[in-house]
């Protein structure tokens, strides 16, 4: 997998297991139900497809994507290419994989540090926590990471990031509450340039994608970043909560439109929520899912890999 930050840390023992464990709920319900569904039913008929539809919809995959997968299945059935459960599983797997792999995972040059990462999303998805984990991931690769407390709106947001800075040994640039986020970013980028940091990770205030002026603020942040370090931000990560339903697609659309999202971080996968909406997002917006948040500790962030994701669904 090509990520901005190189391959996932292989040295970490049992990473795959932890990822699998986090995905267990998704796997159990989705795969077991598909298996239950097809067992004892050699022939694939309309009721099987209907139940399959419900399974996908129940995982927040959404109507359009679900229909697309079902259409592929129907096509195979009508051509007589598929008649039993094994085939059905393979077709679903291939379809989901095709969707996740159709994303544009563009390569980003890290040749001229600092690399600027802007972290955006609606309120309460876990932006600050994700930044803490990301800072940990990067500094464990011996990178010099500077954190930018760009959320000057929410109460104690800078303090929260400050604690993550302490935990991960990264310096945090912040200003007074209510300061212009662009000014904080300007400070952070200037400091990062003069002091040779490898990465700057900028936090932003959570905002609903429907608030025009708050979205315009993100455009301003982009402009500021580009002015201080031309070509930046190099990566704009949209943090999405796995519990999010179909509104996630609209979030992704508008955040991409206004802030140029380059990838998704799917958080809170350690619950029972499936995060199936990322399939809809990958399908429509071709946005790659870069990381998965699987807990509250600093090492609970793992590289999200389409293959591994599908494998863990179907293993």
């Amino acid at each position: 997998m090509q990520t901005l930050f190189g391959p996932p840390p292989e040295s970490k023992p049992g990473l795959l297991d932890r990822f699998k464990k986090a995905m267990k709920s998704t796997r159990e319900t989705l795969v077991t139900r598909v298996e239950n569904l097809v067992q004892g039913k050699k022939e694939i008929d309309a009721s099987v497809l209907e139940e399959l539809e419900e399974i996908l919809l129940g995982a927040d995959v959404g109507m359009t994507t679900t229909q697309e997968v079902l259409d592929a299945v129907r096509l195979r059935v009508s051509r007589g290419q598929m008649s039993n459960s094994e085939d059905l599983k393979e077709v679903i797997k291939a379809e989901l994989q095709r969707i996740l792999e159709s994303t544009e995972n563009r390569e980003i040059s890290t040749a001229n540090p600092p690399v600027v990462i802007l972290v955006v999303g609606v309120n309460g998805t876990g932006k600050t926590t994700t930044i803490g984990k990301l800072a940990h991931l990067l500094s464990s690769q011996n990178k010099k990471v500077l954190l930018c407390a760009g959320d000057t709106f929410r109460a104690a947001a800078a303090e929260q990031l400050g604690i993550w800075g302490e935990r991960t040994g990264c310096e945090v640039i912040h200003q007074k509450p209510g300061a212009d986020p662009s000014a904080v970013l300007f400070d952070a980028l200037t400091a990062a340039k003069s002091r040779n940091y490898d990465y700057v990770i900028a936090d932003t205030a959570g905002r609903l994608h429907t608030k025009v002026n708050l979205m315009a603020e993100l455009e301003k942040l982009r402009r500021t970043s580009d002015r201080v370090i031309p070509g930046s931000p190099h990566e704009v990560l949209l943090v999405m909560d796995a519990t999010t339903g179909q509104n996630g697609l609209q979030q992704a659309r508008l955040f991409t439109e206004r802030s140029g999202v380059t990838g998704i971080v799917l958080t809170k996968l350690d619950g029972t929520a499936k995060g199936g909406v990322v399939l809809a997002i990958a399908r429509e917006l071709k946005l790659p899912i870069r990381y998965a948040g699987i807990g509250e500790q600093k090492d609970d962030l793992v590289a999200f890999d389409a293959n591994r994701f599908i494998e863990s669904l179907f293993s």
Binding site: A242, T243, T244, N247, G248, G271, A273, K274, G276
Partner: peptide
Amino acid sequence: ADAMTGQDAIRS
């Protein structure tokens, strides 16, 4: 509860 929650709302 978050109004944007999807199918999982029922479980939590």
